[in-house]
């Protein structure tokens, strides 16, 4: 069942925000249901937050492989279809083919990376949940997505960690 409530705790101290994240995990909230909101990037894992896994690194490898394959098919196919001996070299001249192979391999990797970024970004999340404008001033927000019966639990954990204000959306 989809989460229906969003609870936000606002903190003026990053330590308190990190404590809230720890508290939520201890209280049994599943990883991925709570997150930290910041106005500037913090180092990965600074708040003990769930680090989303992506597979972007696979895309350039796949693109490069496709590009290399196309390059070999293209260069070998062309030379075999029109076998012209040039400078006494073999019909399938590897050093000449390497140039096209390099270009298409790089092109494939670049194009696949761009496609990968679009794919891995997924669709935009239209339900952004609770938010507070002070986050872009440097305050730390800890947001929990939960069912209605766990809202009070979440509020209690956020309050215990020292939240300045708690919002529900």
């Amino acid at each position: 069942m989809a989460a229906s409530n969003s609870v936000l705790g606002l903190y003026d101290n990053p330590d308190a925000g990190a404590n809230a994240m720890d508290g939520l995990q201890s209280a049994g909230f599943a990883l991925g249901t709570f997150d930290v909101l910041t106005g500037t990037p913090y180092p990965e894992g600074a708040f003990g937050e769930h680090v989303p896994q992506h597979r972007l690194f696979r895309f350039p490898f796949f693109g490069a492989l496709v590009g290399l394959t196309l390059a070999i098919l293209f260069t070998a196919g062309t030379q075999l279809a029109y076998p012209v001996v040039t400078g006494g070299k073999p019909i399938l001249a590897v050093f000449a083919m390497l140039i096209i192979a390099y270009e298409l391999t790089m092109l494939g990797a670049v194009v696949a990376t761009v496609v990968g970024i679009i794919f891995e970004s997924r669709l935009p999340n239209l339900n952004l949940g609770a938010y507070d404008a002070r986050i872009t001033e440097g305050y730390i927000g800890v947001v929990v997505e939960c069912e209605g019966d766990r809202v009070e639990d979440a509020r209690e954990v956020l309050q215990t960690a020292g939240a300045l204000e708690i919002k529900t959306a």
Binding site: L37, T38, H54, I117, L128, G129, Y131, I135, G141
Partner: peptide
Amino acid sequence: GFHGRPQQWEW
């Protein structure tokens, strides 16, 4: 809709 989630910063 930029709210400063870690994933948004990463992307």
